[in-house]
Each structure stands twice: as structure tokens, then as C-alpha cells.
């Protein structure tokens, strides 16, 4: 058999196969979208096992908490424009600046100004307002120009019947005079701003709800079984005891006078029995330190701790360490 012929046949076969491959195997250009990396927290096994029990689908809150509002003293707002905008809406607040008082704050006069009768009024008002405001005359003038734009625009409209509008501020279409906020050319329609304007409450208020332990945790693992006091509760107990404890600052080697006391508590936070010293150190100073610790515990006796975790704090060991005051 002629090997050159079979070689030619084989080579042509390969050429054909690769030709088909070149045409058909034009794999789509591989476009890789940049993927964002996911932040991962590493938690230890003990942290994981100490997760509090919770459900992802737990109801958020049964009822809205009462919001206590505290209104602070009226501070001058940072921008004059804001103040004036507030004033135009909230006429209840007394105007702090005299020049604005002369302007009728009610929207009715503005409407009235659209009619020809009150036309002369705004002009003299401005005229007398201007000389009065000396300290920040420029800013106020600008503000007045802003806030009273409807009025000012009402004027030229009336004048327009006789002569062309003299000011470039005028626009062919008149905004309705009831519009209380001056139309700012570079501001957009924002409902949240309107809501803020309609808010009759004092802007200085601070809303706060009372501290309350949520009984349905919305976070936490389903398998979490931790009944241990969390750090915040330990801190709470520590803070409560700390109020009544007078550490022995003057004692020799006061740093080493570490007293560990075991406290049994009732469900209402009162002491169930006498606090017990866990270890009895030697020395006179230790006795004094232990006594002071006992005294502190007895004096602050009814402790407020979450009832739900009563099992965890029924029997607590508190360490009185002068170095860092307490460790629960």
C-alpha cells in the first residue's frame, strides 16, 4: 500500500476536521462580569453556640412604642431661608425678627394682593422693611425677595396690564399666589420636603422610645440556646452595683484585693439570701474589702434585670476588682 496516499488522505481528513472546528467552534467571547466580593465575618464555635434563639420570620413589633418627644429650646436655624420657610407655614411660632412681622403671614392677604386693591401695600412694606434690617440687610432682602415672590409677582401682573414687566424675574406664567414656598429654580419637587414643611412639630424635638427588652428576637439562630447573660446585661448589673460600692482606695495593696461574691437573686431582683464570699483571702484588708463589697450588694438590693433570663442571673458571681471596678 502506498503510504504517501494514506498520509495524504489522513492529512486532508484532519484539515477538514480542523476547518469545521474553526468555523463551528467559535466559542462566544468570554465576558466575565466583575463580581463583588461578599463580606464574611468569622465567628468562633463558642460564639456560634451562644447565639440567642430567634426566628427570621418573627413579627417585628406588636405595637408601636410610645414615642416621647422632648422639645429643646429654639435655636436659630442655620440658614435664614429655612427659618422663613418655616415661618410661612408655621405661623404659631413667634417670628424672631421684627421686619418679618410687618408682613402679613396669613395666606389670605396674599390672595387678596392678587386683586388690585392691596397692590400699593407690599411696596411700602418692603420699603420700610429694608431700612430697618441693617445687620443682615442683604441676606434678608434676598430672603424677602424669595419668600415674597408671589406677592412681588402679583405686582407686575397688575402692572403688566399697563406696561411690560420691568423685572427679569417674571415669568410668563404666574404661579398661583397660594403657593407658600417660594419656587426655587434649582430645587426639585420633593415630597419629603413638603412633608417636612407640613410637620407642625418643633424641629428641635428629639424623639425617643423607652428602653424595653424585645421579647421576640428577630435575629439569632433557630438552634440558639444561650441563657447566659449577655455582655450588656452584665454591664447593667455591674453598673447597678457600682453605684453603691466604695472601693478601698487607701488600703495597702488595694490592687490585689479582689473579692468574688456569689449572689442569689429572686425573680424581682431582690436578694434571695446573704451574699457569700467565694474565696476567703487572708489579711485584715481583705476582710474590709469583702465587707464593703457585701455592703454594696445589700444596699442596691433590688436589681432590675430581664426577667426572661432569670435562670441565668438567679445565681451570679460578681468579682469586685478595684482595678477595673467590677467584672461580672
Amino acid at each position: 500500500m502506498r503510504p504517501d496516499r494514506s498520509f495524504a488522505a489522513s492529512a486532508s481528513l484532519h484539515a477538514m476536521v480542523f476547518g469545521i472546528g474553526l468555523v463551528t467552534f467559535d466559542a462566544r467571547p468570554m465576558v466575565v462580569a466583575p463580581t463583588e466580593s461578599m463580606p464574611v465575618d468569622i465567628m468562633s464555635m463558642s460564639e456560634f453556640s451562644q447565639l440567642t434563639r430567634g426566628q427570621k420570620t418573627a413579627p417585628k413589633a406588636e405595637k408601636p412604642k410610645h414615642v416621647a418627644e422632648k422639645t429643646g429650646e429654639v435655636k436659630p436655624p442655620d440658614t435664614e431661608a429655612k427659618k422663613i420657610a418655616d415661618k410661612t407655614i408655621d405661623s404659631a411660632t413667634p417670628p424672631p425678627l421684627p421686619p418679618k412681622v410687618e408682613r402679613p403671614p396669613e395666606p389670605e392677604p396674599k390672595k387678596a394682593e392678587a386683586k388690585p386693591e392691596p397692590k400699593p401695600e407690599p411696596a411700602p412694606k418692603k420699603a420700610e422693611a429694608k431700612p430697618e434690617i441693617k445687620p443682615d440687610a442683604e441676606a434678608l432682602e434676598k430672603l424677602i425677595a424669595k419668600t415674597e415672590k408671589p406677592e412681588k409677582k402679583a405686582e407686575p401682573e397688575k402692572k403688566a396690564e399697563v406696561k411690560p414687566p420691568p423685572k427679569p424675574v417674571d415669568r410668563p406664567k404666574q404661579p398661583p399666589p397660594v403657593a407658600q414656598t417660594p419656587p426655587d429654580p434649582n430645587s426639585k419637587f420633593d415630597t419629603s420636603k413638603i412633608a417636612a414643611l407640613l410637620d407642625k412639630r418643633a424641629p428641635q424635638r428629639a424623639a425617643a422610645s423607652g428602653a424595653e427588652v424585645s421579647h421576640t428576637a428577630s435575629l439569632g439562630s433557630v438552634t440558639g440556646q444561650a441563657q447566659q447573660l449577655s455582655q450588656t446585661e452584665i454591664d447593667a448589673l455591674r453598673a447597678q452595683i457600682q453605684r453603691c460600692w466604695n472601693p478601698q482606695v487607701g488600703a495597702a495593696e488595694a490592687r490585689d484585693l479582689i473579692v468574688r461574691v456569689r449572689i442569689a437573686l429572686n425573680q424581682d431582683g431582690s436578694l434571695a439570701g446573704q451574699p457569700m464570699l467565694v474565696d476567703h483571702g487572708g489579711g485584715a484588708y481583705f476582710q474590709v474589702a469583702a465587707e464593703s463589697a457585701m455592703r454594696a450588694i445589700r444596699r442596691c438590693a433590688p436589681y432590675t434585670l430581664p426577667v426572661a433570663k432569670y435562670e441565668a442571673w438567679r445565681d451570679v458571681e460578681v468579682t469586685f476588682d478595684p482595678r477595673d471596678m467590677f467584672r461580672g
Binding site: 500500500m1 494514506s6 498520509f7 488522505a9 489522513s10 484532519h14
Partner: peptide
């Protein structure tokens, strides 16, 4: 190698 293999294969098959 592939070309050679196929050439041998054709050759042998005919043979």
C-alpha cells in the same frame, strides 16, 4: 501524531 495515526489506520484498513 494524529495525522500519522489516521494514515496508518487507513493504510492498514486497506491492507
Amino acid at each position: 501524531a494524529s495525522i500519522w495515526v489516521w494514515a496508518i489506520a487507513i493504510d492498514k484498513w486497506l491492507l
